[in-house]
């Protein structure tokens, strides 16, 4: 049974068909890659899944056996779908610890008015949650920066924090939007290793958008390829790598076979 399923998912902005009839299934406990040239609709696809954008009529999205089509973002998040952003969107002025605490928000048990009427209960629960979040920070290696504002972290630390914040909500599925963007090859490898450990530790299903093909090829169980808003290929990394439609989308028709291999392996 697929954890996430889209049927005929479409989204147009005015005259531009950003996503066109994409049907996709993501199986539980897998790493599912989503690749495609710039502007092929990968980020829009994520925004549709997480409720940041509303899909066009006729689309259907099912997550964990619930129809989440057209539902608001917080509703989808509450049901266990978490994501990171390409541009991170951290809460810059909030401390590192507060950033992950916000990530935990859907599990808050007290009412928003509790600080007025039941301060003791708020403090008791927050203490437990803070210890738990501190453990998470220790795990991703940011514990010693827990109290500084997120904006003052280095680039690599910010990427880790974005990951930590997404995991803090204990999601069933995690969507990663270009986790390795802007990192050196060594750092990308480290980050992917961290992601895979997190996947095991928290029993996650992961969908990852990534431009660095080496990363995608080595970590994904299944890969879907988007081009101009349409799904043009899907399968194992080996299958996708050799699919003429994919090669054409990325490199055009003219290039020789060896050049393509070289580009894929780079």
């Amino acid at each position: 049974m697929a954890l996430l399923e889209t049927r005929n998912l479409s989204k147009s902005f005015g005259g531009l068909q950003a996503i066109n009839n994409v049907s996709l299934k993501v199986e539980p406990n897998t790493v599912h890659g989503l690749i495609g040239p710039n502007g092929s609709g990968k980020s829009t696809f994520f925004n549709l899944l997480t409720g940041v954008y509303q899909p066009d009529a006729g689309s259907y999205i099912e997550f964990d056996n619930i129809n989440v089509t057209g539902k608001p973002a917080h509703y989808i998040a509450e049901h266990g779908l978490s994501r990171t952003f390409q541009l991170l969107r951290l809460y810059g002025e909030l401390s590192v610890l507060d950033n992950v605490l916000v990530g935990y928000h859907p599990h808050t048990k007290y009412s928003p008015f509790a600080p007025f009427f039941n301060g003791a209960e708020v403090r008791r629960q927050d203490k437990i949650v803070k210890d738990e979040m501190f453990e998470l920070l220790e795990f991703i290696g940011l514990a010693e920066h827990a109290e500084i504002p997120a904006a003052e972290l280095s680039g690599g630390q910010r990427r880790l924090l974005a990951l930590g914040r997404a995991i803090a909500m204990r999601p069933k599925m995690l969507l990663l939007d270009e986790p390795g963007a802007g990192l050196s090859p060594v750092n990308v490898d480290n980050l992917m290793a961290t992601i895979m450990t997190l996947k095991e530790r928290y029993k996650l299903t992961i969908v990852v958008v990534e431009h660095i093909l080496k990363v995608v090829m080595s970590t994904c169980d299944t890969i879907s390829v988007l081009d101009h808003g349409q799904k043009i290929s899907e399968g194992t990394p080996e299958f996708v790598k050799n699919d003429p439609a994919v090669i054409e989308a990325y490199l055009g028709r003219e290039m020789a076979d060896e050049d393509i291999r070289a580009a894929m392996d780079a």
Binding site: P72, H74, A77, R89
Partner: peptide, 16 residues
């Protein structure tokens, strides 16, 4: 504060 810092991130973090 999350809403103040980034409304879209806040909604994706499950804040109504």
């Amino acid at each position: 504060q999350a809403i103040r810092e980034d409304t879209i991130a806040a909604s994706v973090n499950g804040i109504n």
